[in-house]
Design a protein around this nucleic acid. Sequence first.
DNA 1: TTAAGTATATACAAACCTGTATAGTTATAA
DNA 2: TTATAACTATACAGGTTTGTATATACTTAA
Lengths: 188, 188
Amino acid sequence: MAKNMRERILVAASTLFHTRGINATGVDTIVAEAGIAKMTLYKHFRTKEDLVLEVVTRRSREFAEKLAAKLDKSTSGPVEKLQRLFDYVEEWLADPQCSGLPFLKASAEFPQPDSPVHRLSAELSQEFRDYITGLAREAGIRAPEALGLQLAMLIEGAVLSEQLSRGSGALEHARQAARILIESAQRK
Amino acid sequence: MAKNMRERILVAASTLFHTRGINATGVDTIVAEAGIAKMTLYKHFRTKEDLVLEVVTRRSREFAEKLAAKLDKSTSGPVEKLQRLFDYVEEWLADPQCSGLPFLKASAEFPQPDSPVHRLSAELSQEFRDYITGLAREAGIRAPEALGLQLAMLIEGAVLSEQLSRGSGALEHARQAARILIESAQRK
DNA sequence: TTAAGTATATACAAACCTGTATAGTTATAA
DNA sequence: TTATAACTATACAGGTTTGTATATACTTAA
């Protein structure tokens, strides 16, 4: 039963954090949404910050894992995988429940570099970049760090643009840019 | 004297919003930082939200204007201007007072699309993209909207990456990517 | 059945939040 | 000098925040 409760809390908090913002969501709201007693929340999470850290981690990892699974399932070669990245991001963005890259939003709400949430965000964004760099390496790109970071920046920028003004075609342009960058990196 | 007061309030609020976050900064803190009485703040700004809107607008426009001034001062041709973009952003990022693109941070803290702050952020980010698109058009690029949006996404991604982990070399890689994209757009 | 653990409801402390009310002070300008 | 406007200081209302205290009920396992 205990595990069930934890899950309910995390789901409720996750939803609220991304629709209303983290700082704008009070513990009482989370408790009401989860349909539990406040004491239960504080038995599972020492502080609200602990809950925030776990929600951000889970949402980021979930995104990364789904992305990886999607790419692994597609039987395309390593270079095509790099391009397919943007197909998945597009799919993910189309979901109305989606609300941007979790570590970007969290870092914006916790700008102080020594804040635990900010530090976690930095770690998670590094994980994301590392994953793309790994794909570039598998694709035999000579400078995988450069291309990995470039594609990561493009994705981050595209997600932000699309979030800020839906239907701006940001993702399509990002995909096109990626194609050019990948091609250029291959030639080098 | 009245104008002086307004300025002091805006400067104090701007600093605090960007170092601690908007929602995390109370009116009392702003008042203390500005060294004025609370009633004075509320005589110049109807609500805290009004103040937020003005701070975000000012910071965004200030960034854009300095950027434009810098580019106009450099006697380079229209194509070089597009590349020079990243030189200025690098300079701007190096300033320890800099704390990311204002409209991105604001939109993250006010995620609800109907929120006034969110709407303003969308407008300002559009202005930014339009400016870069204008540069691309002046440079005689055949598809200026595409390149403009692509460069804007790169800049946004680079600023975020650099903010999230200082010294990641994000900007240098973004500049390189821009070079490739500009070159490719010229050939088409 | 009994005992331990877990969840609940309610109330509360202490601090914070935004915004206002009030009374007194200072600067400006006629 | 006198009227007007702007600024200050303090206090407060009414609400929110995080986190705790307490007493009660429900579940599960021995």
